[in-house]
Structure formats: structure tokens, C-alpha cells
Design a protein around this nucleic acid. Sequence first.
RNA 1: GGCGACGUGGCCAAGUGGUAAGGCAAGGGUCUGCAAAACCCUCAUUCCCGGGUUCAAAUCCCGGCGUCGCCUCCA
Length: 466
Amino acid sequence: MSLKIYNTLSREKEPFESLEPGMVRMYVCGPTVYDSAHVGHAMSSIVFDVIRRYLEYKGYRVNHVMNYTDVDDKVIRKANELGVDPLDLAEKYIEEYDRLLESLNILPPSVKPRVSQEIDGIIELVEGLMAKGYAYEVDGDVYFRVSEDEDYGKLSRRQLEDMQAGFRFEVDERKESPMDFALWKAAKQGEPFWESPWGKGRPGWHIECSAMVLHHLGEQIDIHGGGNDLIFPHHENEIAQTESLTGKPFVRYWVHNGMLQIRGEEMSKSLGNMVTVDQFLSEHEGDVLRFLVLNASYRAPLVFTDEVVEQARRGLERLKGAFRPVASSVETDPSSQHDLIEMIQKAREGFESAMDDDFNSSAALAVLFELVRRINVARDAGVDAHTLGKAQDTLRELTRVLGLQLADKSVALLDAEPYIHLLIQVREELRNAKQFALADTIRDRLLQLGITLEDGKTGTTWKLRR
RNA sequence: GGCGACGUGGCCAAGUGGUAAGGCAAGGGUCUGCAAAACCCUCAUUCCCGGGUUCAAAUCCCGGCGUCGCCUCCA
């Protein structure tokens, strides 16, 4: 089986082949750090984390770069409102985002560059474009000359004429064409600036990503990702700049995630329907959001409502339930062992073929749920602990490829395990003696301590309650 | 106005030519002192609507309707 990835450029699933065998260069557009991240940002980071984890599972080494946009109109505006330094403000939200990545079990990107630390490379890039006639200066601003780029619009499938027809914002008359975009902006009063050949100024929005890719990954990369709202103009412009400069195809696979929507609306500050990641995590574990994301196609819009969150939480519980250990089993059923061993292999194959199909995580989850069911059946049938453990190990390994943590027991709790078993034993004797009131007290008290007891056919099992 | 995506059961959702995965919810049952969990059974003759292509369409084509995104900063 080989991996296929949907490429926004061709609008088709294509066999994945990296530029360099065994190695993937992946760049993902990160957030503009002017405010707290919302669950939509988290969705994007989760999607590309899953992609990375699966590529690593397939044996690739992944060089994963995610940028922080810390020099930007919005950052400056907000900093000025608050009367603080823009870079200090950005720093605060960068630290916050780093923490969120960790809480959501997102593997740290290999490099996390920031615009403010890439200025030299950006200036160099702009100079290169000017030297080749792709850019021009007006009063300290530098613009990209779109008319020079013959295949401009190939990613978003837009024609220059189409775009100009629907123009409904004010055009800067100094530009040669309305579609020309800023590579470098002359500094205005109260804005951070850097010295450049065109005077004091700062980078335009799109140029930063081109510069960071060139700096950290090279002229050509395998995967470039981000939300599908970035296709135009951001990624379109990145292609224009970078390919005009290098003359080489920039990105092999453009990968875009769909937008997360709250009740059919894009989540945005202006609509007042933001759910920040912090808010979400104060009520749910990170796995819930990840499960929600995994349960759908990463390319389609994601429905985010209280009901769907609750469904994700319960689905997760079912997944976790499969890790319960064998009870004090009475008699074993050999056929259950055979079925389970067979399922272990089938689950891995099914999982891989689902994920190979453009990271079809919801189909992969369906396979895992089949494994869960078979594990539960085998446990009820009294399968031996060794075989059950092997099936659980496979389930654990595959859920980890998806980045789910499930109920990873804390060390403290592992220490408590013998005592829990002791209590279960005592309670068992009380139940045999029909001392139900006392038996129930033990169950209730353990529940208060976060441990749920369940009396199954073959004995009592326990699990951690969230 | 232009460009693009999407519309599958009560909810989320997979499925791009061969006769509808999975999860949640719901109903019935097994087990159980009770509870919970688990397991078994049931739950879309049908995939927004109308045409067309085909032996065969949720899947391809045309036309509607609807939702969303982008065209201005946005994961």
C-alpha cells in the first residue's frame, strides 16, 4: 500500500513521493500571534500533527516547520491599543500557543521561526525579486508585479480578470495593478521597523513564509499546509514569489484543512462565537478535540457544537474501555484467542489502508472500533491476559499514531494498583456474604477517588474516571 | 458579480461506477443483589431536488435549490 495525498494544486489525490527518499520537508502556516488561539487553530495544528505522526509511522523522518507571524498589522494595532511593545505582545501569545500544543499532545515542530528573526532573509528575497524584474518600489513600499508571473492564480484557480471584476475595496493608485501585493511596507508612525535598501519598513504578509521555507527547508519542499482560507491570497502569493525567484516548482503537495464551524458559521471574533482552546481544555481533555477532528475528513468543514463534543467524549470513552484488564477469569475459550490474534493483524492492515488514502482518519477509527469490539468480546469470553495484552498493545500503538493519549495511567496510580485489587477482593467477599451495603460503600468511595468499579461476568474490573 | 467546496439515518460521519463503514443517541434482549460496562438484535430499499449517461450511480454529466468558504487580515 502506498500513501496518497490530496493536492490542492491538482485537485486530485496523488501518490506521495518525497523529494528525498525517507525524508519529508513540511511547512505549515502557524498563527498570527495577537490573541489567544481558538479551537479552529487547534484543529489545524491537530490535522498536521496527525499527518506528521503518520508519515513518521511510515518510516519517514519529518522536518516540520511551523512559523509564528509576530510582525503584522493586527499585532501592531493591538499592541498600540494596549500601549505595549508589539514583539512583547507577540511573545506572550507565542508562549501561550506553545503551551497549547503541548496540552493537545501535538509534537513540537522541528523549527518554529518568527518573522522578526528572519528579516535579513526577507530583504534578500525582495532584492532578488527586484533584480529579476518581479518587484518594484514606490515610496518605500515594494510590490510584487503580478503581471510578470504568467501562471499566477494556478493554486486558487482564479484569473486576474475575474478578480479585478469583483473588486470592492479601495485600490492603492500607486500600484501598477490592483492585484500587485506588498512585499515590503514602509514604516508608519508608531510601527516597528527595520532598516532596508528602501528605507525603514517591515515585511508584507506573504513574503515571510517564502523566506522561512527557503531558509529552513530549501527551495523545494514536499508538503505545505494550512487552513483552506489561506489558499488565496496567501499561498497563491507564496508560489508567485518563490517560483519567480527560484524558477523551480516550490511545493509538491499543497494540503489544506477545512474550517471549523460553530452552528454553520466560521468561528471569528466579530461573530462573537469564539471558543478558545483554553476554554475548551478547562472543560474537556485534549483527546476530545482530537477525536472530534479525527472523526471527520480533515478537508471538509468541521461541525463544532456541544452535541458533537459530547459525542466525541463518549466515543473516546468506548475506545478507552478496551484497555480494561482481564478480570479474574474463570475458564478460557480458545477460539476467542484465535479470533483476537487474527483481528490484530487485520486491524493494522485496515488502519494503514485507511490512512494511506489521504489520511482518512474516520475510516481508520472505524477499524479501531472493530478492534475494540473484538477485544471486549474476547475479554468476556475469558481470553488469556497475554493475548488480550497484545491486542491492547496494537490498539495503543495505532491510537498513538493518531496522537490520542487515552487513559495513560499516572505513575502514582500504578503504585496504587495493588491496593485497589485488595479492595476489590475484600468487596468480593462482602458481596458473597450478601453484605451489599458495605460492598456498595467501597464502590462509592472509590468512585469519589476517581476509580470506577464494574462487575463483569468474570469478575470485577476497574478504570479511571475522568 | 467572480472563484471554490459541500449537501448521506435523530446527531456526527466514511464511502468517486457494482448495490449504504464506524461513533453517538434510541428501542428490545443477555449478564447482574443493585449499578455501570460489555455483548447480541433492531434502527437509510436509500444518499437535497429534477433530468441524462450506463447492464449497473450516493458515486459520472446537465439544470435547479440550499449551506459554507475565498475574492480585505484570518488555521
